[in-house]
Design a protein around this nucleic acid. Structure first.
Lengths: 199, 199
DNA sequence: TATCTTCCATACCGACAAGTATGGTCTGAA
DNA sequence: TTCAGACCATACTTGTCGGTATGGAAGATA
């Protein structure tokens, strides 16, 4: 199954995916500006010679790393979309989202990038997530507009929760705090949707 | 009232506040990593010689710029705290928060910084905001725990809304969209608190 | 074994930012 | 008018990064 990567003195040689993964780690922890070829080379235990064989330049790496993040996010969402019960799906969505640590930091780091390409990628990911949310709320009986508004609010609550979790703030540090938060958010963001949401 | 700043050939000389303001602008638009002394010097139309007279180094500038942001944020909150009606106070808080563009970008940019000092400053600001929210919800009759949970959720919704507004995404671009969002959020985050929130 | 390809090391260049040293110029006060 | 201090320009050093050029060692292939 593993595509028998090339080896060199026993150890496998670095793939483009290796570089992309390392780049995503750096972006998640230090932002896009922290991505430097020498540093990545050090963590991968190679030199720049390897980098420029796999990529044409720094922009190329960032582009492909972000594209990889996009794919990974899509896979996760496709998984959750298979859940039948809309309420369970929403709760799973919140819980799952609050658990994926690197994906969170990645989103936050990419969100503050002034690059138009990254902005486009971010909008793509966000719109996909919002669509899943809105669809689910519509399944719960909400009107098109109400579902969209509710999706925006729920997504905002998610993003905000992610923010509060970062910076090891004292608010959502313990897992039981996170669970309580998800519980509360679900109460506020799911339960009301069962009422007649007509103004 | 204006403290008669020194002048030079007619025009006033640069103050440390000028540098801090310029730094905050850069941080808001490009992140902390984008802060460079030559670039700031260019926008202020001076050279590095000026910078190193006002500051000991780059860390000094960032530290004092963040401290300035902290003070500005505190002033805004103290203003809102004077509003009597808790509901009006909350609505004002949301609306005001969604309107202050640079303060938003600043928060997002600082939030992804790995620096422990900045992390501490961010926690200070966040805890101040959360305290105001929790106090207000408690005024609305919620229990201590419920008020705290609700404050976390409301703050998350705010942060998330800020996020959605950045990256000129198509979701909260128009002011009427923002108003509708604030309206919807207020409905979801303020109205329920008037019910008996006893589990 | 001979050769081709894959992957990487090394050396080098230009650009640019942080920081230092130093001297100059303008202003306000004595 | 003189002078001390506030404010800044200039020149320079050091370090690091992006990018290029080039050669070489290890696997694959015949």
């Amino acid at each position: 199954m593993t595509k028998t990567a090339h080896t060199r003195l026993g150890v496998p040689t670095r793939t483009a995916e290796d570089w992309e993964e390392a780049a995503l780690d750096v972006i998640a922890s230090g932002g896009i500006a922290a991505v430097s070829i020498p540093e990545l080379a050090r963590t991968l235990d190679v030199t720049k010679g390897s980098f420029y064989w796999h990529f044409t330049g720094l922009d190329d790496l960032v582009r492909r790393a972000v594209a990889r993040w996009d794919r990974l996010d899509k896979e996760t969402l496709d998984q959750i979309r298979t859940i039948e019960d809309p309420v369970v799906r929403l709760r799973t969505l919140f819980a799952e989202a609050m658990a994926a640590q690197r994906a969170q930091s990645l989103y936050l780091a990419l969100a503050v990038s002034p690059s138009p390409d990254i902005g486009a990628a971010l909008r793509k990911v966000s719109s996909r997530r919002l669509k899943l949310l809105a669809d689910t709320y519509r399944e719960l009986g909400m009107t098109e507009l109400a579902a969209q508004q509710q999706a925006l609010l729920a997504y905002s609550a998610y993003i905000g929760g992610v923010h509060l979790r970062s910076n090891d703030a004292p608010w959502l540090r313990e897992t039981r705090d996170v669970r309580a938060y998800v519980e509360h958010a679900s109460m506020a963001l799911i339960e009301p949707s069962r009422r007649k949401t007509k103004r």
